[in-house]
Computed example of a mutant assay.
Amino acid sequence: MVYWIFNAMDSVSKRLWDYGGSKKLLTQLLDEEQQRELEREQELEEERQQKRPPSVRPYEPQLHNEIKALCDMHGPMLNLSKLTSVFCPIADAFLGTTLYRECQPHCWQQNLWITDEFKRVIQTYRESLDPFLRPARWILIYRNEHIIFVSPFEANWLMGRLHDLYRKQSPGELFTTTLRLLLLRTRRDQSIIVNTTTLKIPPSIGPDRGAVTFPIPIEWLVAFFIFNGTLYFETTDEQAAYCRCLGVCPKPRTEIEEDAIEKCWITVDGFVKKSEHRDLLQLQQCRFHANPLAFDRKLVENRNNTHAPLISHVVIQYYHFSFEQKVKSLGFTSNLNT
């Protein structure tokens, strides 16, 4: 009996040896696997280190007297084009980035501005400013004629000053200068707040108090959408105006547009280059001379810190997909349910 037990144990041991190998071999394999895992983790960490922006020094914030003068409701209107040390055309926000050469600086609306403080972010002269492009969150509507993007530091002062003027406001004295928050629409059914009358500073809450009711025209809004890298639209009118501003001819197409494709008036991504062709295709509101879609896509990626595949970008998607398909898609589409 004992002999049978030892014989069985030898048989089991032999099978374990045949199938499992030596303990030393298993340990060696485990060590090699751990080493490979450590090497993979080290490679990932090196990639993360490479993607991090360089160490930089931020600019010290400044509040110029010209910014304070924007709150003067009774004095003469400032000539922003002559105050170049404080106010800059909106395209100057891309100076020092790889986007500036593609943004077509002279094609933006003349009443869109940024402050020098908005433009100044970090102290550097060699590094690309792509990772430090300031988000566009606060705008000042100046006398209901000019749009000025301001920094959070400036917005904080303007907020307090305009609120103080609102508290001291005389009956029937309506303001035409307001500070507004502009949110990036990253989800469907999300408000961007900029036209919410009660959330302006000062608010529009009555016929004889606060600010004059001034909804921002859609032609100005689409410039915000481009500059802010928006992902969604609230209405089909916004989406159509966005495409007209970029000079894109989307689907579904009319017979005239189909004929224009055969004549090569419309490029493969939907852009219409020549002005005479835009007139025939009702794209007179296009502001760009050259195709802006590559710039627009890069700006969407920068603003949202994400990759925008060509077929899922909102403009390209408008071009490639039918109206119903865009509503059902999960990519960068507009919200058409409101």
Rank of each mutant, 00 (worst) to 15 (best):
R137E: 13
E173M: 02
L199S: 07
F175R: 07
Y166N: 15
S128Y: 01
L184I: 11
P202I: 08
F132G: 12
F153G: 03
D164K: 08
H146G: 00
A155C: 04
T178E: 04
Q190T: 01
L129K: 10
F153K: 06
S128K: 06
L174W: 12
Y142F: 06
T186F: 05
I122Y: 04
L181I: 05
R120K: 15
W157A: 15
V194C: 02
S151I: 03
I148G: 02
R126G: 15
Q123M: 12
K119F: 09
P135V: 00
L179R: 07
F132Y: 14
P202N: 09
R167K: 14
I192D: 05
S191H: 01
R134E: 06
I201N: 03
I192A: 04
T177K: 02
D164W: 14
T197N: 12
I122F: 08
L184S: 15
I201A: 05
S151A: 10
L179C: 00
R187F: 14
L174A: 02
Y142M: 08
L158I: 09
T176E: 13
K200C: 11
E117A: 11
D130T: 10
L158P: 01
N144G: 02
I201R: 01
A155N: 11
R185Q: 13
R134A: 09
Q190A: 09
E154I: 14
P171Y: 03
S170D: 15
T178D: 00
I139M: 13
T177L: 08
T115I: 04
N156R: 14
T198F: 13
A136C: 07
N195T: 12
D189H: 15
Y142N: 03
T115K: 13
I147F: 08
R143Q: 13
L158F: 12
L129C: 11
R180C: 03
L129H: 00
L181Y: 09
F149S: 05
P152A: 01
L133R: 09
R134N: 02
S128R: 05
H163S: 10
I141E: 11
L140Q: 08
F175W: 06
P202S: 10
Q123R: 13
N156V: 10
K200Q: 15
R185C: 09
T115S: 10
L174Q: 06
L174P: 02
